[in-house]
Design a protein around this nucleic acid. Structure first.
Lengths: 404, 404
DNA sequence: TTATTAAATCAATTCGCTTGACTTATTAGT
DNA sequence: ACTAATAAGTCAAGCGAATTGATTTAATAA
């Protein structure tokens, strides 16, 4: 686990680390607050105006920020606000789902520029990776056609895939993508694209998306429950995604959470609360291309069988929310997913009223303890694309430390 | 919540921040690895030997590290290892429990130098704070008598108290210390002692203690379940204590976790799993000074009533452990507490075998998923004392940032 | 005895933030 | 209309902590 002599120590830092951090907090401040003058940034970050001026000059030279028209706001010289340049950076997101792969390309502010999908062959990753690389090549070509210089500003590629990683399958579970999880995907894609590649589970990706441009924007303590084919959570703690000791944090799909009336042979939570479970109930083929439309129809149509399923899921999620609130004391919890909008909204409705917890306080910000987040088949891919942006530009402890 | 114009931004940093961080990682490295030469430190931290040399010189000047006899280990100039100076710093810990207050004074390496307790008057905090200040004064005097210069090296005072803080009582619960929780305790103690004072819940304090000198030493992802009068967890994530958005993270005592056979009117977890529950069962007065001895006796004596209680508690904790593992993916989980050693050990025994979870992996470090930690009435006070040491000397993100 | 290896230091340099004085542009007050 | 006040932003010198590269010291291997 450690180096030659197994001395454990944390990394030191230097001028460069401090500088890198300061660049990141500038970008973060502009992302969260929209547009700010140099003086605003100096006050907000605690740096001197001179330091801010230098950093902003450099960011402007790098094409990451640009000035707006100056605004008079009272006495004194008018301020020149700066904003992020959307075309300052681009990133690719790739989602590997059970039956389909999706890719998305976003810019620095999270606008989606390209969106493409392909069916995954049944032959597993060895065949699948060819399809994936072809899809990625086509997506890049589409980006180039739209924005000629964008190729030089690609900061990385994020992959989202169901977790957990590096673990022997716990339950003999046809829903797990063991073959993909054991395939050297990151290396293959890195070699095939020449980009920096990182892998995370789909729930973490969704949380990254919520933070970049969803309901978690600007919040530092948020739990995102990702209701997709499986069930997981993305943990944003202290403004950073938390992965745990082995990048498997948040796998609540596997918890054995009893509901009233359950016996001890209860199945893991995601066998109840997931799109997989719903597909089983509705006797739908999960690889069906029109799945979302069909599920949406089913939810709108309703019916006792579906209502009962939703009640059961809501009951379990209500308890899950109470557990998560008690454990994390977050600012808010977001229910998002690779699931149709109507389903997520109905579930949020049904989960309320929430159980009492420490999250019940007089003045809350945000006001709601539980809210609906992004809900469409593309949200994990979007989050995957948000990850390289966050890695390159978001303030984080690891970015301050010296690089190897 | 924010400043005048509600611009939200993170703090910047500068040379001073980098330097402060580097000092901290040196101390951390020496704490975790025992004694290291400058060359070792340079390799381990990624800093240049020259930088390490300067920092170590400064730490030595400040009386925080000292050199040992040089050691020959093969070719080349022999290395001079450096170690922490135990008398380099001192900190006071204060625990406010339901019926008693305890104080502990530790040095930089966590040795306990002073240990005193006093009964809390029934009159509540207004009267109690007088008792507390008197206790603290006596403890300080005892420290001075032992180590004359220690007064100048007191880095702070930590208070541990049952949480949660800043919340309207959820359950009408005689075990909650609402009066103390609403009392301006930090200010009173700060004014009364002239020290930097910080407050945390007892579970967090216990986790801090485990990290400084217990089973979590040198680990960065650990969950400590604190089995005391109530039940809580201290979360060590990325090497730092995580407090959540409002310092109430880890309050698992309040979760509504069903066990097989429970109906929906289950009570919060700590109504089953806590010393309070055990006292009720054994019909013991929790303010009894000999409580620990009596409980120890009872556990050793055994009996069907107690066994049944322990089985029930173990069943619930087994599920709790599985939830915590799934959510946090920690390196290990520690069951510690303000409870007798035998009880904690018996519970760990009974909780095993653990439920399947993502923590089940081929090569684990540490090997055990669940282990017993510090277990005695002083562990929260000890943790409270460890907090100022950690705050002053442990590497953490916030220590890098510019100070207001 | 000499070459090699490793620890540790010396002296000069570098780089990004800070300091304090200054310029510019606007509004408030008389 | 003029002046004072206020705020944004820049200039240039200074500073501090890590880096760089050469050097010294002390051990073992050949």
């Amino acid at each position: 686990m450690d180096g030659t002599r197994s001395i454990r120590a944390k990394s030191g830092t230097n001028l460069g680390g401090a500088s890198a951090h300061n660049r990141r907090i500038m970008i973060d401040a502009l992302r969260v607050n929209g547009a700010l003058s140099r003086a605003d940034l100096a006050r907000a970050t605690g740096l001197t105006p001179q330091a801010v001026s230098n950093i902003i000059d450099e960011l402007a030279r790098d094409g990451l920020v640009r000035s707006q028209a100056s605004v008079r706001k009272g006495r004194g010289q008018p301020a020149t606000p700066y904003q992020l340049v959307p075309e300052g950076a681009f990133a690719i997101g790739l989602q590997i789902d059970r039956h389909v792969t999706r890719t998305v390309i976003v810019n620095l502010v999270g606008d989606v520029l390209v969106q493409m999908e392909a069916k995954l062959p049944a032959g597993g990753p060895a065949e699948g990776v060819v399809v994936v690389l072809d899809l990625l090549a086509r997506a890049r070509k589409a980006l180039m056609a739209q924005i000629p210089g964008a190729g030089d500003r690609l900061v990385g590629l994020g992959i989202a895939m169901p977790g957990p990683f590096g673990i022997n399958t716990l339950y003999d579970d046809p829903w797990m993508m063991t073959a993909w999880q054991n395939f050297p995907l990151v290396d293959s894609i890195a070699k095939g694209t020449g980009l920096e590649v990182a892998l995370q589970n789909d729930a973490s990706a969704a949380a990254t998306a919520e933070r970049l441009l969803g309901a978690a924007h600007g919040l530092d303590h948020v739990i995102c429950i990702y209701f997709g084919y499986g069930l997981g959570t993305g943990l944003i703690l202290n403004g950073e995604l938390y992965g745990g000791a082995h990048s498997n944090a948040g796998e609540i799909g596997m918890i054995l959470l009893l509901a009233p009336g359950d016996d001890s042979d209860v199945e893991p939570l995601e066998h109840y609360a997931s799109m997989a479970s719903l597909c089983k109930l509705l006797d739908l083929d999960p690889s069906e291309p029109e799945l979302f439309a069909m599920v949406t129809d089913a939810v709108l149509r309703g019916g006792p069988k579906l209502e009962q399923w939703m009640d059961n899921v809501a009951e379990r999620l209500r308890r899950t929310v109470q557990v998560l609130e008690s454990i994390f004391d977050p600012q808010t919890i977001i229910l998002c997913g690779g699931a149709p909008r109507v389903l997520i909204d109905r579930l949020v409705e049904k989960i309320e009223p929430l159980l009492p917890s420490i999250a019940e306080r007089a003045r809350r910000y945000p006001e709601r303890r539980l809210q609906a987040g992004l809900a469409d088949p593309w949200s994990a891919a979007l989050g995957a694309a948000a990850e390289p942006i966050a890695r390159a530009f978001d303030p984080r402890f690891s970015a301050i430390l010296k690089t190897a």
